[in-house]
Design a protein around this nucleic acid. Structure first.
Lengths: 150, 150
DNA sequence: TTAGATGCAAACGGTTTGCAGGGAA
DNA sequence: TTCCCTGCAAACCGTTTGCATCTAA
């Protein structure tokens, strides 16, 4: 068994997007794949403006409208996750489905810690049972600061 | 022991706000108390625009600027809670501190179920221990739809 | 008396929309 | 060739800011 290279991983992602586009009758434009690539080369969270600047710096000709449009598609096919950390602009994150996690945000500078606690699944399950609903997604975010020394 | 009337309850709230204003050297203007009263007469969630319209309908002369300003104070003294349910406008809710709860949002119409699961406190505690942080507040929201029948 | 609050309207900034031109199918 | 997609810029809309006026202290 051979180890997967990052290139292999991105190929898998590209394939997911391609199949999604085909299934929904959307065109496979070069812009869409360029944006996908740029996002998957990004670690951590980003917002549209940051992505726009980064692509401009990389000499890509792209418009914000296309970024919003494409992000919408990527959200729909589950390759990207959207967060609204209490600000009035959205932040996004590539979602590899490999590592489900939630967030702790530092109040002062917006830094992010990612964590995972399986008990969230228990809460989800009992919620679904109690109210006869089906959860499609959720958001758990803690806010705070470093523990102060006594 | 006599039962508390809603009026008593609001008096307690008014007192919290009054003391907060005094402590921080803010003026006790009639506008601020009118807004407080209007908010505590509101069930469920609301946004600034809705509150503004409601107060206009009640023939109050108030500006959006003052609403934003006052909400900020109410958030600071813990009488109101802010939510950002994935939309780009904020929603608020009076917080009585009597019933801590989280939310389930119906994807199609934005309806809200409030629930409480104590396991969230366990998650919070282990997060604080693991990362040496102190949680000041958090947001847990599930999104979904009614369970489909088989 | 005076510094903080208010109402109004303009500014701000992230997101959405309209439209002419371009390119995937 | 068709019509979906793109880039650009204007519009949109929730929120913030500037300023003249008012008022709680």
């Amino acid at each position: 068994m051979t180890k997967k290279t990052p290139e292999d991983a991105f190929e898998a992602v590209r394939k997911v997007f391609t199949e999604y586009l085909e299934k929904h009758g959307h065109r496979k434009t070069p812009e869409r794949f360029t944006i996908l690539k740029e996002i998957f080369a990004t670690e951590g969270h980003f917002d549209i403006e940051t992505l726009y600047i980064r692509m401009k710096n990389h000499k890509y000709r792209v418009s914000r409208a296309t970024l919003y449009n494409t992000i919408e598609l990527l959200l729909d096919c589950g390759l990207v996750t959207k967060h609204q950390f209490g600000t009035n602009y959205a932040q996004f994150e590539k979602s590899t489905k490999l590592r489900q996690h939630d967030h702790f945000i530092f109040n002062d500078n917006g830094d992010v810690i990612e964590f995972y606690d399986p008990r969230i699944e228990e809460i989800r399950t009992s919620l679904e049972k109690t109210y006869s609903v089906e959860v499609t997604n959720y958001s758990l975010t803690f806010y705070g600061h470093p523990r102060t020394k006594k």
